[in-house]
Amino acid sequence: MVRALIYALLIAVSFIMLYPMLWMVASSFKPDNEIFTSTSLIPQDFSLDAYRRGWTGLSVGFGQMFLNSLLISVLVVIGNLFSCSMAAYAFTRLRFKGRGFWFALMLGTLMMPQHALLIPQYVMFLKLGWVNTILPLVVPKFLAIDAFFIFLMVQFFRGIPRELDEAAIMDGAGPLRIFLKVILPLSMPVLATAAVFSFIWTWDDFFAPLIYLNDIQNYTAQLALRTFVDATAQSDWGALLAMSTLTVLPIFILFILFQRLLIEGIATTGMKR
């Protein structure tokens, strides 16, 4: 009895939670007049018109923005995996002077709000002539700026038995070979988690592109969508919802493919501080 009640409640809550998103997708296939007259999740007149209007609604096609977003996100993934795994390896496996000190600082940066760093970073990138390029969005990721991922990987690396390293040392392997041939192959789960999270977060990011990208040519999909809100002056909701749907589509896909990984990633970072 209690069980049935809980079920009913959970189903109701999940329906309410999902409804806006489902409606967004449904409405993107509706003709404009239907959007404001129907709360239904099934379009009466199925039409791709909104997509056609949206795709070409800005002076530069949305295709270009998607490519920009894709390029940035992929580079960020590579940068994060490369630099954070190296740092995590140094912190967990190599003996050197000052390791504890640097590790404490790294944990400190986890807490450091980025806002305090923003303006000098901006000024620096401006002086380097990097503003309005993707460099400010990508290069920092090759410098392990996302301490969260270092932390995630440190937690994982600590679970790999040290005897494996020692066996490899006995086999004559140096730090680089141990890293490449033993640690990384065994860390696929955490690398995949980090990759998916950094892709999604970069894809979703709005603030950094807003600051660093001025030219519509260079816009990311998020930035383009936000510009599109102004461009349509909120009159073409169909096109807007269609483009909104498109920008979250990659995330939906990744979510469906890597659900387990994402959920476990969240759970482990929460549990093991």
Partner: peptide
């Protein structure tokens, strides 16, 4: 080896965190 592997983070720490924080 230690500082080699830590180099990207160290550069990032000084150039993108500590430096900007002080600035």
């Amino acid at each position: 080896a230690g500082y080699g592997f830590l180099a990207p983070w160290l550069i990032g720490f000084f150039a993108l965190t500590l430096g900007p924080a002080l600035a």
